[in-house]
Design a protein around this nucleic acid. Structure first.
Ligand SMILES: [Zn+2]
Ligand SMILES: [Zn+2]
Ligand SMILES: [Zn+2]
Ligand SMILES: [Zn+2]
Lengths: 137, 137
DNA sequence: CCCTATTTGCGAATTATTCGCAAATAGGGT
DNA sequence: ACCCTATTTGCGAATAATTCGCAAATAGGG
């Protein structure tokens, strides 16, 4: 029988496979948009909130998940599947993923002009706009 | 005698010129890096914290300031001077500005592939890395 | 199955953010 | 300069978000 995806993710990084971690992983996997810690706390009532926060931190450190900052200011988390970013509606908060981020030109230009940095390890890019249904009204 | 920059910023948008607004504006103007609401609260002890929060929101709505999300998850604010972004050290939190963001190619590509959006109104871009002094150790 | 290092749940402390309302005040009109 | 009123502020307290300490539960190696 096949090993589940969440077991695999945890095992591959030498993390213990526990109920709370599986629950949090699935919460993230089940939804399309990035979630806040509180959203996960409320959806997964079985897991204590302190554990949810601890688990999310752990996931980020382990590279299983990553933080996403949309306009609101709340930190959100999503599975670190691959290189994609978000298009977010500033009115209704709808989120759509997009791929094809070629940020290298920008970042190498930034590096070339930098006085204090010589390495860039990651980036975040968020696009904001109005979704079609919001711009209709 | 010349009108001060903060008076100008407020007057131009039809906002009342008040002590707290001037103090918050100066707090933002005096520092290079984006500040959190709490940092401003603690630096400008004269202004009540509720007022600081209200003022920052007001500044964002009026276009005087904007929110900046660095890695930590805390919302930061900076004056909306012009189009620049940040290079942030993930170890020591040092922040350096950079210019020359040509995100149009990325965003038009994203739009072309989007099912739900046809306008992009703004974006945020943050680069992360290690600053020279941190990468030395 | 046992043993131990890890992880969890709980309760409570911190910290961040927001509210309601009475007192203070900015700015237009006189 | 003085009034008047709509706005804004300060205060106190409510609410929400995040973190802590520690004893009890448990994953996983032997
Ligand atoms: Zn929308
Ligand atoms: Zn990218
Ligand atoms: Zn550094
Ligand atoms: Zn840009």
């Amino acid at each position: 029988m096949k090993e589940s995806i969440e077991h695999k993710a945890l095992r591959e990084r030498g993390l213990r496979i526990t109920q709370p971690r599986i629950v949090v992983y699935r919460a993230l996997a089940d939804v399309k948009a990035p979630l806040t810690a509180q959203e996960i706390v409320h959806s997964a009532r079985l897991v204590d909130q302190a554990t949810v926060y601890r688990t999310l931190e752990l996931f980020v450190e382990a590279g299983i998940a990553r933080k996403v900052n949309l306009q609101s200011g709340l930190v959100r988390y999503e599975l670190n599947s691959d290189d994609h970013h978000h298009l977010t509606c500033t009115r209704c908060e709808r989120v759509e993923d997009f791929r094809g981020c070629h940020v290298e030109k920008i970042s190498s230009h930034a590096l070339a002009h930098s006085r204090f940095f010589s390495t860039i390890t990651s980036h975040s890019l968020e696009l904001f706009g109005l979704c079609n249904s919001c711009s209709r009204t």
